[in-house]
């Protein structure tokens, strides 16, 4: 009832649980659960859409939506740093996938490479079986089926950073079976070196080559791209030559 602006608290209250009102006009809505359903539906729906789509650019777009919805799930679970990281690295990395999809499939014959019907049926059966096994395993443990009523998680950026340099400042989780938790300095260093190696390796692998194998020349000569394909095919090499540095840095952006 203060006259001040309190916009920040509004979203907080939406994201976190609201107390049941004493005299409800309508049944109290648990916004956490509603948002969870929204993000979960988006994540699952677009994940399935990735499988169902044929066009590689659309696949990449659906993947982006799925991963972004997953970032929303991370925020809801209280992993704020991980959520932002998911948005920056995972979704940003998929951006590069999207660009490659456009570049590599600009010729019309390659836009959709369809699997055969029998492959589809087999994959469907195998996928259904796998899903059944996973779900059966997931629901078979009673302790996992309790609704969550825990405390609001505290910010994670600082304790994560401290843990990465080898110091743990977070309280051990309630009832944790493990004692003597350690920092993650060594894995952090290993991952840093790993990323450097990957950067150098990817830049080496993807360096511009001028020669083409005879087979590639055959394929290119035999294909008969329609108008759009020809236009886009003309665009592709130009893009690659003008932004040779950009291609590398795109990988760098995905990995930094």
């Amino acid at each position: 009832m203060t006259g001040t602006i309190r916009m920040d608290s509004i979203f907080t209250s939406v994201l976190l649980h609201l107390p049941a009102p004493t005299a409800p006009v309508v049944a109290a809505v648990d916004w956490h659960s509603v948002l969870f359903l929204l993000f979960a539906g988006l994540a699952c729906g677009f994940a399935i859409a990735v499988v169902a789509a044929e066009n590689v650019v659309r696949m990449a777009l659906y993947l982006v939506f799925s991963l972004a919805a997953t970032a929303g799930l991370f925020f809801l679970a209280g992993a704020d740093f991980l959520g932002a990281m998911q948005l920056m690295i995972y979704v940003g990395g998929t951006l590069v996938l999207l660009v490659f999809g456009v570049m590599l499939t600009a010729q019309a014959p390659l836009v959709s490479i369809k699997p055969s019907a029998s492959d589809r049926a087999l994959a469907g059966i195998a996928g259904a079986a796998l899903l059944a096994v996973l779900l059966a395993a997931a629901v078979s443990v009673d302790a996992w089926r309790k609704p969550g009523v825990g405390e609001i998680p505290s910010p994670t950026a600082t304790p994560l950073g401290m843990a990465l340099v080898g110091v743990r400042v977070d309280d051990p989780p309630a009832g944790a079976p493990l004692t003597g938790r350690s920092g993650y300095m060594l894995p952090f260093e290993i991952v840093s070196v790993h990323l450097l190696v990957v950067l150098v390796g990817a830049a080496y692998l993807a360096r511009a080559k001028r020669r083409k194998t005879p087979r590639a020349i055959d394929v290119l000569a035999s294909s008969d791209p329609p108008s759009q394909g020809a236009v886009l095919a003309a665009a592709v090499p130009a893009v690659r030559t003008t932004s040779g540095a950009g291609g590398k840095s795109a990988l760098l952006g995905g990995g930094h």
Binding site: G78, G148, G150, E151, P172, R181
Partner: peptide
């Protein structure tokens, strides 16, 4: 997430 486990159940933290 301690939020999702609830009831003091063990979490990975």
């Amino acid at each position: 997430s301690p939020y999702l486990r609830g009831d003091g159940a063990p979490t990975l933290g």
